[in-house]
Write a protein that binds this DNA or RNA. Structure first.
Length: 116
DNA sequence: TACGTGACCGATA
DNA sequence: CTATCGGCCACGT
């Protein structure tokens, strides 16, 4: 697995329960602001990863559950989020801004995530 | 080997 | 305001 993917998974694992972030935010944090699609691709394999990667806490920048179909069922992702206290209406996270977790601000650069 | 595709994003027209 | 377009890069034909 490439370093980029490893870092993506590591960041996603740091997302606190009940918070969410976006593909773009993760891409920016990893130093490739325009590689958000790679983050999405990484999520494609996320379910094979060990330890567990809470991919349901990653949505697009509008708070839209675009990747819900990859969770094995159309409602799985939404249920996971709601079980953590996040409300979802019409595949859209309610008060997205309020639950948003920005790794750029919350996660310090350290030996795990070297600053580029 | 080459080309199309994708759980995206930001800048234009 | 909506619509479209390029960029990013790993993977499967």
């Amino acid at each position: 697995m490439s370093d980029f993917n490893e870092n993506v998974y590591d960041v996603v694992r740091q997302i606190p329960v009940g918070r969410v972030t976006s593909y773009g935010a993760i891409a920016r944090f990893l130093g490739s602001p325009q590689s958000s699609r790679m983050v999405g691709w990484a999520m494609n394999n996320a379910h094979n990863q060990q330890p567990y990667v809470p991919a349901h806490r990653v949505v697009n920048r509008q708070g839209l559950l675009t990747g819900k179909v990859h969770f094995g069922g159309p409602d799985v992702m939404q249920q996971l989020l709601e079980s953590e206290g996040i409300k979802v209406v019409d595949d859209q996270i309610v008060d997205f801004q309020k639950h948003f977790w920005d790794p750029m601000k919350e996660l310090p650069f350290d030996e795990t995530f070297p600053m580029p």
